[in-house]
Write a protein that binds this DNA or RNA. Sequence first.
DNA 1: GTTCTCA
DNA 2: TGAGAACAACGCTAA
DNA 3: TTAGCG
Length: 295
Amino acid sequence: MELVAEHPVTITNPDKLLWPEANITKAGYIQYMIEVSPWLLPYLRDRPLTLIRYPHGVHGHSFYQKNCPTYAPDWIRRVPVWSDERKDVIQYVVADSLASLIWLANQACLEFHVGFTTLVRPTQPDSVAFDLDPTVAGFEPVREVALALHGLLDRLNLPHLPKTSGATGLQVFIPLQSGHTFEQTRIFTKAVAVYLERQLPNLVTLERLTKNRGTKVYIDFPQHGASRTLIAPYSCRATKLATVSTPLLWSELAAGALPEQFTITTVPPRLRKQGDCMAASNDLASLREIVRFLD
DNA sequence: GTTCTCA
DNA sequence: TGAGAACAACGCTAA
DNA sequence: TTAGCG
Ligand SMILES: [Mn+2]
Ligand SMILES: [Mn+2]
């Protein structure tokens, strides 16, 4: 089976079930990519990809892939990035077209993870994210912590919005003006996390050891770092329900939205009807004043 | 999913 | 001819 | 330094 976008792509095993419980085949996954590409591609632009591949579906063996396979067609964009530890360059894939998305989907890349910088300004984070991870099943504590964080960021007059991770937690993003450093964002994220832990001691933990977290929500503020990544907005997750990392309105979160409501099936019609609430706001934050005060 | 290597 | 392996890796932070 | 984490 062959699909033609900017380039022709041969689809192998289009009927293979990648998400059996959700009844999503590879062809269905590619259809999702085609439908959401206008909203997904902007979040992948100029960002080296960390991919997670599931060649035999979400229940099969998986592996991370950073280096672009040598057999990829030459129109797949590769960007060399030096890796200190490996003492070599990694040829990262950067998705710059629908055809790239389709080719990666055929490779069973189910998850697309990206960092906080782009190739345009590789040392400057263009957003801050608070990663809220529940320790035990149940979304209500996550919602409660997120809404408290919302109140705080509102009082600081910083633009921000939530997105489901597609797994069990939530991320709160602050889009930044250009010119910030990771040193500044580290000071800020840590101060906010410590503040929330004090404000909600029964609900929030900053404890690194899982066994010491009890049933609290872990504010994973170290996840905001130079070489760290988070699931990209509108990327699928390798979950039973084929959930999607989905930006939400605060009103939706306050009204009881749940991560499992946003899936490969529900997200395309949502985007067609309501558009992308993350793209809708173009307000950028400056942390300079707050960081100067904290420092 | 695809390629490569070793039986 | 076919089975099996490889396909990432690092900063953070507490101890 | 390393251990444990994501
Ligand atoms: Mn998370
Ligand atoms: Mn996390």
